[in-house]
């Protein structure tokens, strides 16, 4: 599903990624770990074409991300879901509208949207908060709304950047359980985190970055 081939990323003299090579199979779940500044976010940003490698190649599915045209880029991004540490919900839109955003952006039929949104909110157990504004939710609920938004369009790849960074351990476990469920439904999941305890509690593969170099790629 994901192939990083000798990917190097430089910002001027600074090396953010240093000849990173790894691959993830479809429906595989993995953690991307490392200290702050190790290159986790940079790596994830490559996977949604927010960054281009200075050297090397990134493949996602059949897409060679270097060769995506401007027209292909939105089509590619519709196959990816992204969860942020701060869920970045739109404060003046309801939970429903926030979750529906990727469907509307992708031009889904209006009749399809309510069902899809309800299904996504059911998955995170928040369908009863359909009409609430983000300001009325707890941080855990907001994060789950962010996850619902990331999966509402049924992506093949789910990326999460420190998704439990602001949550207590109990909520973190719930969120991890959700990611595992998505993986069980065939979604490839890559989670960037620096929470070692969380990673150790899961049976999934670990990709460890240290100063831009991939120093571990296994369980």
């Amino acid at each position: 599903m994901i192939q990083f081939e000798n990917v190097t990323k430089r910002y001027g003299q600074r090396l953010a990624l240093d000849e990173v090579t790894f691959s993830l199979d479809p429906a595989e779940m993995a953690f991307l770990v490392g200290h702050s500044g190790a290159g986790k976010s940079t790596l994830l940003r490559h996977l949604v074409c927010l960054e281009a490698p200075s050297e090397g190649r990134v493949m996602v599915g059949n897409f060679d991300l270097r060769r995506l045209s401007a027209d292909q880029l939105p089509m590619f991004r519709r196959k990816v879901g992204v969860v942020f540490q701060d869920p970045q919900l739109l404060p003046d839109r309801s939970v429903f509208d926030n979750v529906a955003l990727p469907l509307r952006a992708a031009g889904f039929d209006r009749k399809v949207i309510p069902g899809r949104v309800k299904a996504a909110l059911d998955q995170v157990e928040l369908s009863h908060l359909n009409g609430a504004l983000p300001g009325e939710l707890s941080s855990g609920q907001r994060q789950r709304v962010g996850i619902a938004r990331a999966v509402v369009h049924k992506p093949a790849l789910l990326l999460a950047d420190e998704p439990t960074g602001n949550l207590d351990p109990e909520l973190s476990k719930k969120i991890m359980k959700l990611f595992t469920q998505f993986r069980n439904h065939g979604v490839t999941v890559l989670i960037a985190t620096h929470e070692q305890a969380l990673v150790e509690a899961q049976p999934f593969r670990v990709l460890r970055l240290d100063q831009g170099r991939l120093v571990e790629s296994g369980r």
């Binding site: 991004r77 519709r78 739109l90 955003l101 952006a105 369009h153």
Partner: peptide, 17 residues
Amino acid sequence: RAELALVDLVGGTQRYA
């Protein structure tokens, strides 16, 4: 800007935005 960043990231086209 924040909303447009999201639209961009979830696959909204420039035309849609």
